[in-house]
Amino acid sequence: MDLLKVENLCKTYGKGENEVKALDNVSFTVPKGQMLAVIGPSGSGKSTMLHILGGVDRPTSGKVFLDGQDVYAQNNKNLAIFRRRQVGLIYQFYNLIPVLDAEENITLPMIMDGRKPDQKHLDELLELLQIKERRHHLPSQLSGGQQQRVSIGRALFTSPQVILADEPTGNLDSKNSAEIINLMKKSNRDFEQTMIIITHDENIALQCDRIITLADGKIADDKLVGIK
C-alpha cells in the first residue's frame, strides 16, 4: 500500500533568465514502511524534494499525497499541524533549540500540540537513543552524535508516518554515523515507519530498501536494493 504519492512535482526558483528548475516533473510513490535513500550530486534537487515532502516548502506545481491526503491543499495552519504530527524531520546540523534541554527538544512537537508527553514512551525512546543520562543537558552540552540522536528523537517522538532525514550523518564521524543509521533502521523496523533519507554516503544508501537517484531535478534512476 502506497503511503506517499508524488505527482509531477516541479519547483522553480527565480524568474526569467535567472530561473532555475530545482525539481522537474518528479513522480514516484513510497509504500508504507519502506526505507528510501535519495542520492545525487549537489544541486540535483534532493533537499528541495525533501522539504516539499515534509510540508516545509510549497511546490511550484504538482501534488504530494500522504496517506491519500493532498498535503498542499491545506492552509498554513494545518500545514504546520501536518508537520507536527505526520512527519519527522532530521537535519544535518540538528536544528535543536539551544535553550531547551534534550528532553524538551524531543517533546517539543507534542508540547506545541498542547498534549502531555507520555513519560513511558519518552523513557523508552531516550533508552533507545542512548541519551537517557543526558536528558537534561542543553544542546551545547552534547556531542554532535548526541545532538543528532536528540534530533532523531524529536522526529520519532510523535510517531509520525514518515521520517525525512537530510544527510543525518553528514556532520558525524563514522562511528556515530553507523550508530545513527542503525537507530533509524531499528525505528523503521520496530515502528514500521516510512523513511526517506538524503545521503551522499553510498554505504548508507545500500542499507536502504530502495535508492532514487536525482540529477538536474529529475529522477535519473530508481531501483530496489534489498540488502538490509
Binding site: G54, V56, A80, R84, L96
Partner: peptide
C-alpha cells in the same frame, strides 16, 4: 533560524 526550526517541527504562525 531557530524559529524556522520550530516552524519546521510544527509551530504555527
Amino acid at each position: 533560524s531557530e524559529l524556522a526550526s520550530m516552524e519546521c517541527v510544527g509551530m504555527t504562525k
